[in-house]
Design a protein around this nucleic acid. Structure first.
Lengths: 190, 190
DNA sequence: GAAGATGCATACTGGTTGGTATGTTACAGG
DNA sequence: CCTGTAACATACCAACCAGTATGCATCTTC
């Protein structure tokens, strides 16, 4: 489903790979669409929570947390090859299936809100510049991040993803507030 | 093909819509794949050239040209609904078909190079800040632009695209050099 | 004007694939 | 034990759809 997309994903192949029979699947799910919904609601949602929401909620410094998350993004060839599963599903299904669109949109919203809330918290603590709009910045970060992953997936070149990481990290550093510029950190726009 | 993606696009439906018979199609193309290649090489390439490459080559000020292009991006619901056809095809086919991957990658490269060359030219004229890397900036612009289009396609909300335009425009303004800051322009990071 | 080539049109086919109908096992309750 | 039901397994179907086989005008060339 990650490689081929939802519609071109072969149910029989999925069942064979999972060593599950068709009877077992259709006992638990009404149809392929319901299986896809469950993948978004459970698999993709928990990936997003583990990678983004949880670290941001438990971070002392949101910029540091974001830097860590971005740096933690795998640059291995096999991960880069298929891109972001949330973005893939969203792009494929949004114009065609309102159920998929709403579910993926909810994940993007949760992602966005986690970043925005953390940035606002950081602004209160002086760790994040107060002259930026947290909501707009969160959207911008997500757009740039997903955009770079898309370009890297197309080029199939690890260096493209690494360059993208570098750009996003520079953007993150430019968001630090007065109290966030400590211990010899160098910030371009500082 | 734009809505449904390449593989799920129904050839019979395309033929009916174009009022062309299957015999006519298969006289000129070996198979569906060859038709898809032609769409990338001719249709998408000429769209990209008309919208980005040509205006950038004939611009006196690259920032002004980029601002114009970004502002000229349609925010109509029906255009936003299906997203960017180049990015769609690229994301769908890159992991599955090397021919599609190479072709879409070439269009992204031409797009990137057009921006980078224009920015370097602008740097020579003092219209673009000399402390930015033209290549990295071009990639960043494309990534952010495509990222916002993807998010807008998912949300199906015109305001998301408009907010994205605003963010990209702010980024563009921050790139202006000394000789580009005239006639009362206000630049955030200036 | 005969013969081939060009440029299509139409009917058909064969493989793929989501979904179903029916059979079977295992276990729980009485 | 007997019955019922939950939890599967298997064989099959029907639709969809890319691709093909064949037919048929028109046009070119000698």
């Amino acid at each position: 489903m990650h490689r081929s997309g939802f519609r071109s994903a072969d149910l029989n192949a999925i069942l064979a790979a999972a060593r599950v029979t068709k009877g077992a699947l259709y006992y638990h799910f009404d149809n392929k669409e319901a299986l896809g919904y469950a993948v978004v609601d459970e698999v993709l949602a928990s990936i997003s929570r583990e990678k983004w929401v949880w670290p941001l909620q438990n971070a002392k410094n949101p910029i540091d947390a974001l830097v860590g998350i971005v740096q933690g993004t795998s640059c291995r060839r096999e991960d880069l090859e298929c891109g972001c599963s949330l973005n893939n599903l969203s792009q494929e299904m949004s114009p065609l299936n309102e159920g998929f669109r709403r579910r993926t949109a909810k994940l993007f919203k949760d992602w966005h809100d986690a970043i925005a809330v953390a940035l606002r918290q950081g602004q209160k603590l002086g760790l994040v510049r107060s002259d930026v709009d947290a909501g707009e910045t969160a959207t911008f970060l997500i757009a740039a991040y997903e955009g770079f992953i898309s370009l890297a997936k197309n080029s199939q070149d690890v260096r493209v993803l690494q360059a993208g990481q570098k750009s996003v990290l520079r953007l993150l550093e430019s968001l630090r507030g007065r109290r966030g510029l400590t211990k010899g950190r160098r910030v371009k726009a500082g």
